[in-house]
């Protein structure tokens, strides 16, 4: 098909116009969030498209010990969940991906089924378990509970990754009598960089964003994570008209994720599609 030059140019213009619409639709709410967070006092009531560049809302929210505390809690929870779920999943993936044993397929099926459990279906049983473990109203309860959506996914993705590595790479090490722990550490871990980054990032994002468990298993303000803290900011309590503070808090919580999304776009997408296409 030979198309004329003007036709091709029109086609390009149309595509870029659509790009523009999609970008505007996607990004404008963020712009508005940041612009609103930078307006102080009464200015938030005026719809002006340019921000004031006043940092009062940030000062207010950051001098509030409770918000800083929830930020710290969220960081501790997210990093612990990433570390713990990866540690457990690498071991499980080595067993499931590299060793042929009876019970392998049922366990894979179990892992897949667990990854589909709706969180609400576990709530009362998990509540009891967390109380029994003495974790109620501690961030430990969230680190434990978040294993439900990070561990099965990580096991699944890392297993398919390990299974696709060539057989020969560990044969010599096995013959030399290397311990399995050493094989995983010295042979597999160095090769698994991309897969670990993908699964780790997705686990981080999921834990950073989780709301229902954080709302249910934490009772007092100082143990909350940021999504719940932001959901609970309301006019009746500490802030008169809360949206300036809410937008400032939201911006603070969102910026690290936007940076992660832009820096590691390829890793996040490959993790997502590995989970979906092979799962």
């Amino acid at each position: 098909m030979v198309r004329s030059n003007t036709g091709r140019r029109l086609h390009r213009i149309a595509i870029y116009a659509l790009f523009g619409i999609v970008a505007l639709y996607t990004l404008f709410p963020f712009y508005w969030m940041i612009a609103s967070s930078l307006k102080s006092g009464q200015a938030i009531f005026d719809v002006t498209f340019l921000p004031d560049l006043k940092f009062n809302n940030y000062q207010a929210i950051l001098s509030d010990g409770v918000f800083l505390r929830s930020l710290l809690n969220s960081l501790i929870v997210a990093f612990s969940v990433v570390a713990l779920s990866l540690l457990l999943a690498v071991g499980a993936a080595y067993a499931l991906g590299r060793i042929d044993f009876r019970g392998r397929s049922p366990i894979m099926l179990l892992v897949l089924a667990v990854s589909m459990f709706p969180q609400i279906a576990l709530l009362s049983g998990l509540f009891e378990m967390i109380r029994w473990l003495g974790l109620y109203n501690t961030i430990g309860s969230l680190i434990f509970a978040y294993m439900i959506f990070t561990l099965p996914f990580n096991i699944w993705v890392l297993t398919t990754f390990m299974r696709d590595l060539p057989k020969q790479i560990e044969e010599a090490a096995i013959m030399d009598g290397c311990s399995p722990l050493r094989i995983v550490r010295c042979i597999f871990l160095p090769m698994m960089g991309p897969a670990l980054i993908s699964t780790g990032l997705l686990a981080f994002i999921a834990s950073w964003n989780e709301f229902m468990f954080a709302l249910t298993f934490i009772l007092t303000d100082e143990n909350r994570t940021v999504p719940v803290a932001i959901a609970l900011i309301s006019g009746s309590s500490r802030y008169e008209f809360p949206y300036g503070a809410i937008m400032a808090a939201s911006t603070i919580v969102t910026v690290p994720l936007i940076v992660l999304a832009l820096l590691f776009q390829k890793h996040i997408v490959s993790g997502l599609t590995a989970g979906a296409v092979k799962g």
């Binding site: 963020f30 508005w32 959901a231 939201s250 999304a261």
Partner: peptide, 23 residues
């Protein structure tokens, strides 16, 4: 564009809800 469209998905739903509530 691919990087841009990843952003709404990666931020907390609570934040998106608050953002739209304000808009």
């Amino acid at each position: 564009m691919r990087a841009i469209i990843l952003i709404p998905w990666s931020i907390p739903v609570v934040v998106s809800a608050r953002m739209w509530q304000w808009m």
